[in-house]
């Protein structure tokens, strides 16, 4: 959702494009087919490259601007690829009252990037998320599929080191 143009060159393969076009052809004209198409695009490419969204726009006969408008509305969609390791710190209420903002700050310091961005080498991207539903473990951070709960800011460094 961040307001920035895609900064990396498009690296979609013909196979990926074909997969997307197949999906689009199946869903064209279906009521409410836009969201599933966007989700499919993100699933295939990892983000929403402009080139891929043009395929969706042409295939579904929906203005590109409308697709972008819809996609940029939702937090789930990204216009830039994510890092190899996606780090997310939960800023849901339960985590927040238990100090997850400090955890997030510690991660920012450790990775040297702001929330919503990616390290220069493309290894880590950092996001703040809303409640992943693991409130019992608050405060929670996820790295890829790994969940780390009951965190304190000083544990962050050691955890991230494992992925460095």
């Amino acid at each position: 959702m961040p307001n920035c143009k895609t900064v990396v060159p498009y690296r979609g393969t013909p196979e990926q494009e074909e997969e997307l076009l197949r999906f689009v052809a199946e869903h064209k004209g279906q009521p409410g087919g836009v969201m599933p198409a966007l989700q499919k695009t993100q699933q295939i490419f990892g983000y929403l490259p402009e080139e891929a969204l043009i395929l969706v726009a042409e295939g579904m006969d929906v203005p590109l601007s409308e697709l972008y408008s819809v996609a940029s509305f939702y937090a789930q969609f990204s216009f830039n690829p994510k890092g190899e390791h996606q780090v997310s710190v939960c800023l849901g209420t339960a985590c927040y009252v238990k100090g997850s903002a400090d955890v997030l700050e510690a991660v920012e310091k450790k990775l040297g990037i702001r929330t919503g961005s990616i390290t220069r080498d493309g290894r880590f991207s950092l996001d703040a998320t809303r409640c992943i539903g693991a409130c019992g473990l608050a405060p929670v951070m996820t790295v890829g599929g790994d969940v780390y709960g009951r965190l304190t800011p000083d544990q962050v460094g050691a955890i991230l080191d494992k992925y460095m």
């Binding site: 959702m1 143009k5 895609t6 402009e50 203005p63 590109l64 601007s65 409308e66 940029s72």
Partner: peptide
């Protein structure tokens, strides 16, 4: 742009306080 003209090159992008009218990918 959308209703009268069916061209649809501008739309509200993003949401909340960051909402702004622009074209796809803010081109």
């Amino acid at each position: 742009c959308h209703k009268l003209q069916s061209v649809g090159v501008i739309s509200p992008n993003e949401r909340g306080f960051r909402t702004h009218i622009s074209s796809a990918y803010d081109r």
